[in-house]
């Protein structure tokens, strides 16, 4: 019964600018990944390289969350309840990498 009286929803025409923006974001993500590859094979390994990698990763995360997940369009309280915990998470990563380095000094 329910499926018999099919509701015909009106199809809204494509907005070319919106779709172009999606593909542009995809291009940015791929270019940033390509840049990471170039750095991985041309730069000496070290703390500077790691900082560059992490910054480029955050750039990619920004585009995925803002353009693909539309987090920026959500209400501000929701936006901050997602973003603020992530800032603490970044701090925890840095703190425990330092802790790991100290364990290394104690062990060797």
């Amino acid at each position: 019964m329910a499926l018999d009286n099919k509701k015909e929803m009106e199809v809204i025409p494509k907005d070319a600018a919106k779709i172009r923006k999606i593909w542009l974001t995809a291009l940015i993500l791929l270019v940033v990944t390509a840049i990471e590859f170039v750095f991985a094979f041309t730069m000496p390994r070290g703390i500077l390289l790691y900082v560059i990698f992490i910054l480029l990763t955050i750039v990619k995360a920004y585009y995925i969350m803002m353009e693909f997940m539309h987090l920026g369009e959500e209400a501000k309280p929701l936006f901050y309840s997602i973003i603020v915990p992530l800032i603490f998470l970044v701090w925890l990563i840095i703190a425990l990498m330092k802790e790991g380095a100290d364990i290394f000094l104690m062990r060797w």
Binding site: P85, L86, L89, L92, I93, L96, M97, K98, E99, G100, A101, I103, F104, R107
Partner: peptide, 17 residues
């Protein structure tokens, strides 16, 4: 995100040690 964060934090800490 917290679960994956815990994995990556563990990775960072063990790797540096």
């Amino acid at each position: 995100i917290f679960t994956f964060g815990a994995f990556l934090i563990t990775y960072g800490a063990i790797r540096m040690s």
